[in-house]
C-alpha cells in the first residue's frame, strides 16, 4: 500500500474542549498538535492516525479507513491505549504528563502537558561535535531519573533516542513517546510493526524479544549518548551482531571527553545484555562519578535540579 500523508486538523479547529493551534509533528503513527484548553493553557495533543491504515483528506475531519484495514486500525488503537496507560501510571518530572484521553472524529486523542523546548535530537544537530561532557552527564543523569521511574513500574520504554528526549527551556529533560509499548503486542502485525529506530534499538529488540529488560533501554541510552558525542547513532545492532564495526569511543574521542565517560558509553553499548549496566541506577552512578579532571557532576542531580543547568543551557 502506498505511503500517504494525512492532512492535519486545521488551525482553529475545536476538538472536544480544546482549540487546535498548529501541528507540531507528523509521525508514522500519529500527529501531534499544539492546542489550548478552555482556560487558554497550552497542551500537546497526540492524534492516533497510522498513515498506512487511515487517510484524512484535505478538508475532512474523519479519517477514512477501509473495511480491509479496520481490524488492524482498531488493533493499533489498542496499542495507542497502551501508551496512554503507561503514561497515566507515571507521575514524574522527567516523564511527559498525560492530562486527558478522549475519542473524537472516529479516532482517539491523548492530551499531554505542553512542554516548551526542543528535542535532544535538534540540540545535537545544532551543536554537532561540540556537545560538552558536562551537558551530557547532567542531562542524562536527569533523564535517567525518569527512566528509573518507568522501570519501577515494570514498564520498558523501548524507543529511547534523541528525538524522544525533550529538553525544556530550563534545560531539564522529559521522556516523550511511549509509543513503543505498542510493540510488545505486535509481534505478528507487519503493517504496524517496525516503529523502533534501528540505530538506537538493542539487538534483543530485533532477535530475542523475550530477553528484553531494563538493559535494552540502557542500550538505547548508550546509543543516544553515542549520538551526542559523534553526531550519529552507532551501527545498527542487528548488523553489529553479524559484523561489528563499532570502534570504542575511548579510541576515537579521548581528546575531548574523559575516558570514564567514554567507557561508560561503551559499556552500555555491549551487544551482550548481561555485559551492560543492569540497572539505570548503576548507570547513573557511573555518570555522576567524578572524572579525572576532578570535574564532578553534582550528586544533587539525583534529586532536584539546581540552577546550574539552567545557566548552562542558557549559554549554548
Amino acid at each position: 500500500m502506498p505511503a500517504q500523508t494525512n492532512c492535519p486538523l486545521p488551525a482553529g479547529f475545536q476538538l472536544d474542549q480544546y482549540r487546535i493551534e498548529r501541528q507540531l509533528s507528523l509521525g508514522g503513527f500519529s500527529i501531534v498538535y499544539l492546542a489550548h484548553d478552555r482556560e487558554g493553557s497550552p497542551v500537546a495533543i497526540k492524534e492516533y492516525l497510522p498513515n498506512s491504515l487511515a487517510l484524512r483528506k484535505e478538508g475532512e475531519f474523519e479519517p477514512q479507513v477501509s473495511d480491509e484495514h479496520m481490524p488492524a486500525f482498531r488493533y493499533g488503537m489498542k496499542c495507542f491505549f497502551e501508551e496512554g496507560r503507561s503514561l497515566a501510571k507515571l507521575m514524574h518530572p522527567n516523564v511527559v504528563q498525560v492530562l486527558n484521553f478522549f475519542r473524537a472524529n472516529g479516532t482517539v486523542y491523548m492530551v499531554m502537558k505542553f512542554e516548551r523546548g526542543r528535542t535532544l535530537h535538534d540540540y545535537i544537530q545544532k551543536h554537532r561535535g561540540e556537545v560538552s561532557e558536562r551537558f551530557i552527564r547532567i542531562v542524562f543523569t536527569r533523564m535517567l531519573n525518569g527512566l528509573r521511574e518507568v522501570h519501577a513500574h515494570k514498564l520498558l520504554h523501548l524507543d529511547i533516542k534523541p528525538s524522544n528526549i525533550y529538553l525544556r527551556n530550563d534545560g531539564t529533560p522529559v521522556l516523550l513517546d511511549f509509543g513503543a509499548a505498542r510493540q510488545t503486542l505486535m509481534s505478528d502485525q507487519p503493517i504496524l510493526k517496525p516503529m523502533y529506530t534501528p540505530g538506537f534499538a538493542s539487538p534483543e529488540q530485533f532477535e530475542h524479544r523475550d530477553a528484553l529488560g531494563p538493559w535494552s533501554d540502557i542500550y538505547s541510552v548508550g546509543a543516544s549518548l553515542h549520538a551526542c558525542i559523534t553526531g550519529n547513532a552507532p551501527q545498527r545492532s542487528d548488523e553489529r551482531v553479524k559484523d561489528d564495526t563499532v570502534v570504542p569511543l575511548r579510541r576515537t574521542h579521548a581528546a575531548h571527553y574523559s575516558a570514564q565517560l567514554l567507557d561508560t558509553i561503551d559499556w552500555c553499548l555491549k551487544l551482550d545484555p548481561l555485559a551492560r549496566p543492569q540497572s539505570v541506577y548503576s548507570l547513573q552512578k557511573s555518570l555522576i562519578r567524578r572524572d579525572e579532571d576532578g570535574d564532578a557532576v553534582h550528586a544533587g542531580l539525583f534529586g532536584d535540579l539546581g540552577a546550574r543547568l539552567k545557566s548552562f543551557i542558557g549559554r549554548t
Binding site: M77, F81, G84, A88, F101, V108
Partner: peptide, 12 residues
Amino acid sequence: IEKAIAEINAAI
C-alpha cells in the same frame, strides 16, 4: 474502547 479510555482517565 470506552472502557480503555475510562480506565486511562481514572489513572490520570
